[in-house]
């Protein structure tokens, strides 16, 4: 089975015979589309409008053109949050993808033990962000924390996980990976189960080694899932908010402040809705570009193969 690398997310699909352009199709999409427009498109456009104004929540604002954007790009803290957010995405997305794939490869069997282990790795996904951060704060706090107990027992120099600027974002990333690992793992398990076993049988007859089987059969077969996982995770991890807010409040020295935290802070704490809206548009563009870049890079690779 050659994986159809280039069809991921593509719009042209197998067209059912004799189906000509008709409005019936739109009817199926309409219910979702109405909600989507009302809940996302209109607020987003409204947000673009707001981003050009000096405005709070309680009255008409004043048109100021691009000033909010200009101010953002000269705002050290905002630029720092952009860097932090990229750093966080770099910390989490590759890890989630690789660990998720590794777990899936190891657990791609139907046995009770494997099932249970798979269940355990998925279980953290069901928790809410409040619970997750509560758990990890308790682990990372100095003195009483689990980590600090371990470090003391091992006679290591304790690390101030949440209050060392070099560690704070890494700590948040660790908690995030623990929280989010379930979904990528499951998506990979699903993909692995789709690979026809006769491929492996044929390879075994040809005397292919383990890594050869992985490289020539497994990897090409799950390429689309890899891309899917990466894109989903990019989109999700760019929106880091709750974990950082609850574990470090963005500190110390803004080392773990994310763009969404900046937006929340500007909008709700400072009532500076215009700036919050402008920052939202920038984040939206960043995510879009990152996800698209990933998509096109993988598409090109697929096409050249």
């Amino acid at each position: 089975m050659e994986a159809p690398l280039s069809t991921f997310g593509e719009i042209t699909v197998t067209i059912v015979k004799s189906s000509r352009t008709s409005w019936t199709g739109l009817l199926f999409v309409l219910p979702f589309l109405i909600v989507f427009i009302a809940m996302i498109v209109i607020p987003l456009i409204w947000g673009i409008y707001l981003s050009l104004h000096k405005v709070d929540l309680f009255g008409p604002g004043r048109f100021i053109g691009l000033e909010n954007y200009v101010r953002l790009f000269s705002n050290k803290i905002f630029l720092q949050t952009v860097i932090n957010t990229f750093y966080f995405v770099l910390l989490t997305v590759p890890a989630l993808t690789l660990i998720g794939m590794g777990l899936a490869l190891a657990l791609n069997k139907e046995s009770p033990v494997q099932n249970i282990v798979r269940g355990i790795f998925f279980s953290s996904t069901v928790l809410s962000v409040t619970v997750v951060t509560l758990i990890w704060r308790i682990i990372f706090i100095p003195n009483d924390g689990l980590m600090s107990n371990i470090f003391t027992a091992m006679d290591w120099q304790p690390i101030a996980f949440l209050s060392d600027p070099n560690w704070s974002l890494i700590s948040v990333a660790i908690a995030t990976i623990w929280w989010c690992i379930g979904l990528p793992m499951m998506l990979f398990v699903a993909a692995l189960q789709q690979i026809p076993s006769d491929l492996y049988e044929a390879a075994a007859i040809d005397g292919a080694r383990k890594w050869q089987r992985f490289y020539y059969i497994t990897l090409p077969s799950i390429t689309r899932t890899i891309i899917l996982v990466i894109i989903i995770e990019i989109v999700m991890q760019f929106q880091l908010f709750g974990q950082a807010l609850l574990m470090t409040q963005g500190g110390p020295n803004n080392s773990s402040r994310s763009i969404v935290m900046f937006i929340y802070d500007a909008g709700f704490r400072r009532w500076d809705v215009g700036t919050a809206a402008a920052a939202s548009q920038i984040l939206f563009l960043l995510i879009l570009v990152a996800a698209m870049a990933q998509f096109f890079v993988s598409r090109k690779k697929g096409a050249s193969q």
């Binding site: 719009i11 809940m39 498109v41 209109i42 987003l44 548009q281």
Partner: peptide, 20 residues
């Protein structure tokens, strides 16, 4: 329409919540 909906994936909740 499909592309627009896909782009919706990239909209963070905080960006639209006040308008909503």
């Amino acid at each position: 329409i499909f592309v627009i909906i896909l782009m919706g994936l990239a909209v963070p909740e905080q960006a639209v919540i006040m308008a909503r």
